[in-house]
Simulated assay, not measured.
Amino acid sequence: MKNHHRIVVLGAGYTGMMAAIRLARRTRRTGVEITLVNPSARFTERLRMHQIAAGQRLADHRIPDLLAGTGITFVLGAATAIDPESRTVTVDDGATSLEYDTLVYALGSSTDTSRVPGADVHAFALNSPQEAARFATRLDEVAAAGGTVTVCGAGATGIEAATEIAEAHPGLNVTLVGTGEPGAMMGAKARAHLGRSLDRLGVTVKVGARVTKVLPDAVELETGEVVPASVCLWTTGVSVSPLAADAGFAVDDRGLILVDATLRSVSHPDVHAVGDAAAVRLAWGQIHGTCQSGMPTAQYTADAIARRLRGKTVKPFRFGYFHQPISLGRRDAVIQFTHADDTPRRAYLKGRAAVLYKETVSGGPVKLYRLGKRMNVSATISKGGRATRKPADPYRSAH
Rank of each mutant, 00 (worst) to 15 (best):
R346V: 09
L194K: 01
G178C: 09
L256E: 06
R22C: 08
R396I: 14
T15V: 13
V104D: 00
H5N: 03
E160Y: 07
F43M: 01
M375L: 09
V142E: 03
A245E: 13
Y100T: 05
T148Y: 10
L47C: 08
K383T: 12
R374T: 14
D65I: 15
G329P: 00
R307E: 08
I21P: 15
C152E: 05
D253F: 10
K206F: 06
T380M: 05
G224M: 05
T150V: 06
H323N: 11
V203K: 03
H122C: 07
A340D: 15
V219A: 02
E359F: 03
H323L: 15
I381V: 11
R134E: 09
A144W: 10
Q336A: 13
A192L: 00
L176F: 10
A81D: 14
T290R: 08
R374M: 14
S86R: 15
T102H: 02
L282M: 10
E141T: 12
R210C: 03
A20V: 10
K383F: 02
T15D: 12
G16F: 07
L256A: 08
Y348P: 14
T175M: 03
L371I: 01
A143S: 12
I305F: 03
K367L: 09
R87I: 07
A123R: 11
L10C: 15
D92N: 11
H399S: 09
A68H: 04
A161F: 14
A162E: 14
T338Q: 01
S378A: 04
H323T: 06
P216H: 12
R310T: 04
A190T: 02
E167H: 04
L243C: 04
E220F: 07
R389M: 11
H323P: 01
R87C: 15
D252H: 00
D342C: 03
G178Q: 07
K358T: 07
A261E: 14
E131Y: 00
N173S: 13
A162K: 03
V8A: 05
E164Y: 00
R29D: 15
L23F: 09
R48N: 12
E225W: 01
R370M: 08
E181G: 02
A250C: 09
D276Q: 13
F322V: 00
T157D: 00
R254I: 06
A306G: 14
